Simulated assay, not measured.
Amino acid sequence: MSGMDHSTMDMSGMDHSGMDMSGMDHRAMAMPGMQAPADLPADAAPRTPIPAVTEADRAAAFMPLGAGHPAHDKRSNSFWLVDRLEVADTAKSGGWEGLAWIGGDVHRTWLRTEGDVEDGRVEQGNLEVLYGRSVTPWWDLVAGVRQDVGEGPDRTWAAFGVQGLAPYKFEVEATAYIGGSGRTAATLEAEYDTLLTNRLILQWQGEANLYGKSDPARGLG
Rank of each mutant, 00 (worst) to 15 (best):
R133E: 07
G221Y: 08
Q147C: 00
R112P: 01
Y168H: 02
Y177T: 01
L130S: 10
D119P: 00
P37S: 15
A185P: 02
A88F: 14
P70A: 03
A174Y: 00
G115V: 06
E173C: 10
P49A: 14
V117W: 03
M9F: 12
L210V: 14
G98S: 09
P41D: 00
G152T: 04
W204E: 09
L200I: 13
D25E: 15
S2N: 15
G144E: 07
G219P: 09
T187E: 11
G125E: 03
E171K: 04
L111Y: 05
G132C: 09
E128S: 06
W204K: 00
A143Q: 09
V53R: 13
P41Y: 02
L65E: 10
A30H: 11
M14L: 14
L202V: 13
T187P: 00
D116S: 08
K169E: 11
Q203Y: 00
L188M: 09
A159R: 04
P70E: 04
D5Q: 13
M63C: 09
S181E: 15
V135M: 10
D43M: 00
T136P: 02
R133N: 07
P41W: 05
G94M: 01
L85H: 05
L200Y: 10
E123L: 04
D73Q: 05
M4L: 15
S76E: 12
P216N: 09
L202A: 15
G150Y: 00
G152S: 06
R199F: 08
V122G: 01
R27C: 08
W204D: 13
L200E: 08
G13H: 12
A185S: 11
H16K: 12
G152V: 02
E55F: 06
W96F: 14
A143M: 08
W138D: 10
W138A: 12
S2D: 15
R108W: 02
T175M: 01
